[in-house]
């Protein structure tokens, strides 16, 4: 087991390194530069700025400098928001995005599992149809549409929730709901399908015959075996959700990491794009490793190679 984990960690590090290198060189293919604007400064000013940030050097030299600094833990400074270092921007954004993300994942897991179990238990009945309808909608409709519909309905029409920022608990309701919407629907579908599969198996009939209560059968015997696909799904989802959702952050004006990544990309803020990409890669790799380890724990039949 330990050997396996160490090996996975090394592979993960290599993945992050590869992502770093590829992104670094891809960035040079993107037209434009960080100092262009509608009323761009003169060529001399741009040259001055390029020299200040070392962007005038050959690409390979820039790459070497970047990697050396990276090994020292230095992500550099933002070219656009020059008062801040990349690390500061990532951390301040991640705190916000992760707070929303954790809340959203908790909601998605709780409601998704309950919904999935209920749908499977009442298979073919009205409640099942209703939940299937909901989960199909949730999976099929993209988040930017759901978000705008929610915003118009709950904020403008009914005027229940505020729109901008995260100043009070009430401000959290809509962004978290929108963020949790897709994973809830997806988990519900996963749990429903695998529960249907599990509930039809022999050992469940045995448990029933033994006279166990329905509650015990479902939560003690059936659900655990139905959880495997949920865990697989949860790993990458958790990573993506922690890292922030640009649409939701933009609409609700939340200073998360998704917003930082998009403005960095549109503004060609190279060090910030690199920093966030590395951070994102790191979290995704880490989550995938965690999921694989969790697999082994939940289902001892799985062999880790």
């Amino acid at each position: 087991m330990l050997k396996y984990i160490i090996r996975r960690l090394f592979l993960g590090l290599f993945t992050v390194f590869a992502v770093t290198t590829i992104t670094f060189f891809l960035l040079f293919l993107v037209p434009g530069g960080p100092f262009l604007a509608e009323k761009a400064p003169s060529e001399e000013v741009i040259a001055e700025l390029n020299a200040r940030y070392g962007l005038d050097k050959p690409r390979v030299v820039q790459y070497k400098n970047y990697m050396v600094n990276l090994l020292k833990g230095d992500f550099g400074v933002s070219l656009k928001r020059r008062e801040y270092t990349v690390k500061e921007i990532i951390m301040s954004g991640f705190v916000v995005s992760a707070r929303l993300g954790v809340l959203a994942i908790l909601i998605a897991v709780i409601f998704g599992m309950i919904g999935g179990v209920l749908a499977a238990y009442y298979h073919g009945k009205f409640l099942d149809n209703l939940l299937v309808l909901f989960s199909t909608w949730g999976v099929a409709v993209p988040s930017f549409i759901t978000t705008i519909v929610f915003l118009l309905f709950f904020c403008v029409k009914l005027s229940i929730f505020p729109i901008m920022g995260l100043f009070s608990p009430l401000h959290y309701v809509l962004p978290v709901t929108c963020l949790a919407f897709y994973p809830t629907a997806y988990i519900m579908r996963l749990v429903r399908i695998s529960m249907l599969d599990v509930l039809g198996q022999d050992y469940i009939r045995t448990a029933r015959a033994k006279g166990l209560s329905t509650f015990k059968i479902i939560f003690k015997h059936a659900l655990r075996n139905a959880l495997l696909p949920v865990i697989t799904y949860l790993g990458p989802t958790l990573a993506w959700i922690l890292i922030g959702n640009f649409v939701i952050e933009k609409v609700f004006n939340i200073p998360g990491i998704g917003m930082a990544l998009i403005s960095a990309t549109l503004g060609r803020d190279y060090p910030l794009i690199m920093g966030i990409t590395i951070f994102l890669a790191f979290i995704i790799v880490l989550m995938n490793i965690l999921v694989d380890i969790l697999y082994k724990i939940i289902d001892p039949r799985i062999r880790l190679v």
Partner: peptide, 19 residues
């Protein structure tokens, strides 16, 4: 000052007197 670039959300916030 709320700093945003989403015109639709800004308009919605204006409609409900948030800004």
């Amino acid at each position: 000052a709320n700093l945003t670039m989403d015109d639709k959300a800004a308009e919605a916030a204006f409609r409900r007197n948030e800004v």
